[in-house]
């Protein structure tokens, strides 16, 4: 029987797969954003503001932020599992990472729907 640890991996495919799917979503968003930033009209305040007021851009950006949150969580947990061995310290840092990620997400929503 495998000995399970509270700060161990989920022993499954889900996070691995999620990291790759969220990466693909962020890659698509990145390409669109770069095309808008360097390909189109010069970015002035009205152009910038209009871009982030459009419904599709708000939803796409929120989707990007949600993908980033999940992706970053898997990545941070991988790093903590590799370098931080004491269970208590690792769990504390994992919780800290989650709190930071949740705060990032909340702030993003606040910026987008002001």
């Amino acid at each position: 029987m495998v000995e399970r640890v509270v700060t161990g991996a989920h022993y499954g495919l889900r996070d691995w797969l999620a990291q790759r799917i969220t990466a693909a979503i962020m890659a698509v968003y990145t390409v669109i954003l770069v095309v808008v930033l360097v390909g189109g009209v010069p970015i002035t305040y009205p152009v910038w503001k209009d871009l982030f007021t459009q419904g599709w851009m708000r939803v796409a950006t929120l989707l990007f932020a949600a993908s980033l949150a999940w992706h970053a969580w898997v990545g941070m947990r991988d790093i903590l599992m590799d370098y931080v061995k004491p269970t208590g310290l690792r769990l504390s840092l994992e919780v800290a990472a989650l709190v930071v990620i949740a705060a990032y997400l909340g702030w993003t929503a606040q910026i987008l729907w002001r």
Binding site: L68, A72, G75, M76, I79, A97, V100, Y104
Partner: peptide, 9 residues
């Protein structure tokens, strides 16, 4: 990746 995690702020 680690750098970008903190840079989001």
């Amino acid at each position: 990746g680690l750098l970008l995690f903190f840079a989001v702020l």
